[in-house]
C-alpha cells in the first residue's frame, strides 16, 4: 500500500500540490488524471522519489520515503523510464537485464539471466533482443522498458504518461500488458494518463486532480461524468456508457 499523507509541494512561487492525502491499495491499475498543470506528474515523481518531499509523508508499505534504504525500496517500487541515455549503446537484452540489478547488484546469477530471457519471450522481444535501443520504434522501446520494470519484480510500478508518442496499436497493447501485470501477477500499477478514455477503459480506479488537490476518486463509472468534466476540465464533453464503461466523446 502507498500512503500519501498531507503532501504539499511548491516549485518556486507556484503551489503545485496542496495537502494531498491518498491511500493507494495493493492490486489493480490506478490512474492519475486531470488537466495540464494539475500536479499529477509531480505527485507521481514524489512517490517515485525523483524529487525530494517538501512537506508531508509518503509511505510504501512499511518504508518511509526519504528515510529508508534506496536499494530495498528498489525491490518494491519501480518507475518506468521514458528514455535512457542514447549514447550508451544498450541492446534490448542489456536493458531488460538492468531490471534485475536491485536483486543482484551487478553480479547476475543464472536465475537472473533466466528471468530476463523469459521476460524477453513474454513481451515478444525475442527477435529484438540483440538490437540496439536506438534502432527500435517508439512502441518497441516502450515494451522493452516495461519488460525491464517487470523483471524488477516490484509490487508497485509507476508510469508517467507512457502513451505519449505511441500510436493506437502500441498504446492499446501497452495498456493491455499493464492490465495483465495487475490481473495475473497482482502488481499495483500507478499511471499518469492524459487521455481520460484510456483511464476509463483500463483502470480500476481513477484519481482526478485539479489545481494540486484531489477532486474526484473512485471507479471509472463513478468518477467520469459530464459534471466532473465540466467542473475539472471546464469543457462540456458528453459522456456515454459503452459496455459499462464511461466514454468521453471528444
Amino acid at each position: 500500500m502507498i500512503e500519501i499523507q498531507s503532501v504539499s509541494h511548491r516549485i518556486g512561487q507556484a503551489q503545485i500540490l496542496t495537502d494531498v492525502s491518498l491511500r493507494l491499495e495493493r492490486g489493480g491499475v490506478i490512474a492519475l488524471a486531470g488537466p495540464n498543470g494539475a500536479g499529477k506528474s509531480t505527485l507521481l515523481s514524489l512517490i517515485a522519489r525523483l524529487q525530494p518531499l517538501q512537506q508531508g509523508q509518503i509511505r510504501v508499505d512499511d518504508m518511509q520515503l526519504g528515510q529508508c534504504d534506496d536499494r530495498a525500496l528498489a525491490r518494491k517500487l519501480a518507475i518506468l523510464p521514458q528514455q535512457v541515455n542514447a549514447s550508451s549503446r544498450l541492446t534490448v537484452r542489456d536493458l531488460v537485464g538492468f531490471g534485475r540489478y536491485p536483486h543482484h547488484r551487478g553480479r547476475p546469477t543464472a536465475g537472473d539471466r533466466a528471468r530476463v530471457e523469459a521476460a524477453l519471450a513474454q513481451f515478444d522481444l525475442g527477435p529484438l533482443a540483440d538490437r540496439q535501443l536506438e534502432t527500435l520504434s517508439g512502441g518497441q522501446r516502450q515494451r522493452a522498458f516495461v519488460a525491464m520494470s517487470y523483471v524488477q519484480d516490484t509490487d508497485f510500478l509507476l508510469l508517467d504518461e507512457p502513451l505519449n508518442n505511441l500510436d493506437l496499436a502500441a498504446a492499446r497493447s501497452l495498456m493491455a500488458q499493464l492490465r495483465q501485470l495487475a490481473d495475473d501477477q497482482g502488481r499495483t500499477v500507478v499511471i499518469v494518463l492524459h487521455d481520460i478514455n484510456y483511464a476509463t477503459a483500463y483502470a480500476d480506479r481513477i484519481v482526478v486532480l485539479k489545481g494540486g488537490r484531489v477532486v474526484a476518486d473512485g471507479a471509472p463509472a463513478e468518477t467520469v461524468t459530464a459534471a466532473m468534466l465540466e467542473q475539472v476540465f471546464g469543457t462540456a464533453a458528453p459522456v456515454h456508457s459503452v459496455g459499462g464503461r464511461p466514454v468521453v466523446l471528444v
Partner: peptide, 21 residues
Amino acid sequence: MRFRLDVLALGPVAAVSLGED
C-alpha cells in the same frame, strides 16, 4: 563503483528506479 556506474549511465530516472541515488 563499476556496476553502479553502469546503472548511473542510464540516466537519473532509471537509476533511481533501480535504487542508485
